[in-house]
Every structure is written in structure tokens, then in C-alpha cells.
Amino acid sequence: MSWLTDPWHFTFMQHAFLAIILVGIICGAIGVFVILRGYSFLGDALSHAIFPGVVITFILGGNFLVGALIAAVIISTLIGVVSQSGRINNDTAIGVLFAGSFALGVALMSLQSGYVRDLNSFLFGSILGVSRDDLVITAIVGLVVLVGLAMFRREITLISFDRVFARSTGLNLWVFDQLFLLLLALAIVVSLQTVGNVLVLAMLVTPAASARMLTDNLRRMIALSSTIGALSGLVGLYISYYRGVPSGAAVVLTATAVFGMLFLFAPRNGVVTARVRQRIHYSHPEDDVRVVPDKPQA
């Protein structure tokens, strides 16, 4: 079993493992709301839009997480402001700002020497370079995201589920949309170093999608999504360590494989499982009817 413990002898691997577990938990939790609100595109866009912030801190020197955080706040506010105008819808606002700011980042980056190597580590992550400071920042920001989600769970649930009613109760949708965007941006920023810009979307969406295959209960879905995210990270890192596959790719492929398995074989909702159940219950088709019969009590 020494293959399990071997990687842990290196400090950089210990940091890498802890970082990817944290990222799995954070992205898994907020990712549930990303998929329930149909915000995949927004998640992808935010991760790219943060790029110029990273480049500017790279040029000026300093921890890139700080620059990324500032960029994330600016971009999420801009998306809110542009889509508020009414004439341009949310999706378009996201598209315009995401491409524009990513281009700005590329332009800034190209002016630097060592352009290709650094761009590569930004796009695909450089998990082996996670420092102790990075870990502390990741843990603190992660805590902020999780506490924020817990504090505003009801409002976020309500605006995800029923915006019209939420507005009729006096809830300020704009404020809570912005708050959610900010939490999402924070989650993305701390994931950049481990999985990279291109693949962070998978950490948000894939474990949550896997959890959706397993449960109809929101709280359980969040717990499962975080667990699947963290475990995929762990397994992916081992694969990366022994096979020399880039860490981000290994982690995301693991998460994707988990989703593939569950999509086919999840106990109740898997495509194959459902077929098999249908076969078994063929003589009693009413057993499989999911609509609860309406029996008003006298």
C-alpha cells in the first residue's frame, strides 16, 4: 500500500492534496446552485474574465489570488450592471464582458517575457506550486464561500427556484444575484491554481451533476457534490502523480468518469438502471409511476 502514502512524503504533494480537496468541497457546494440555476456559462465566463487581474498582479508582483479576487468583484458587478439595462440580456452581457476581459489579459500577458509558459500554467493550473500561503488563502476564501452560502441559503434557494415570488416578498433580487456571483467568483479564483482556468468549470458543474443523479434533496445534493468533488480531486492527483498527466486534466477526467458511471448506473435515475427497473416492473407498470396519486383526505 506504499503507493498510497508515497506522494505524501513530499511537501508540495501534501499542499497539492489539501488544495484540491478544499477546491472540491468549495466548488462542489456552490456548483449545485450553478447547475440548478443554469449558470454553467456564467461560471465559465467568470473564470476567463478573471484573467487580466491575474496578469496585472503577475506584472506588478504579488499574490495572484489578490488580483484575481479584485478582477472577479469588478467583473461580477459589471455583468450585473450591463444586464440591468434591460436592453441586453444577461447571457449577452456575460459573453461581451468575458471575451473582452480575457482578450485584455492575453494582450497584457503577451507583453511579458516567458509568456507561453505562464499562460500555460494559468490555463491548466500548476498545482505543484501551491505554497503554504496559497493554502491559507484558499482555506479562508473557501470558508467565506461556505458561510455565505449557509447564511443566505434560503434567499439563494428562493431566487433560484421562484424569482417572481421572491420579488413579491420584497427580496432584492439584484443584491442576492450579485452576492451569489461574488461567492461564485471567489470559488473560481481559489480553484484557478489547482485546476486552471479552462477546467475550473468542470469542478463547478460535474460533481454537482453527479450528485443530481443521486438525490432529490437539496442539502444531500450539496453534501454529495462536495464529497464527489473532493474525492475526484484526490483520485485525480494520484493519477497525475503516477502517470504524469497534468493535474487539472486528471482531476477533471476522474470527475467526468464518476458522472458517466452515475449517469448510466445511478441507483434510481441512471439511464441503464431505469431501463432495467422498467423491465423488472413491466408487469406492474404502476410501480414506476413517479407522480404521486392525488388522494385528498376527507
Partner: peptide
């Protein structure tokens, strides 16, 4: 107005 597939 509502997404009835929401898991609650």
C-alpha cells in the same frame, strides 16, 4: 413561472 424540477 417556476422550475418544478428543483430538488426540494
Amino acid at each position: 413561472d417556476v422550475d418544478w424540477t428543483f430538488p426540494i
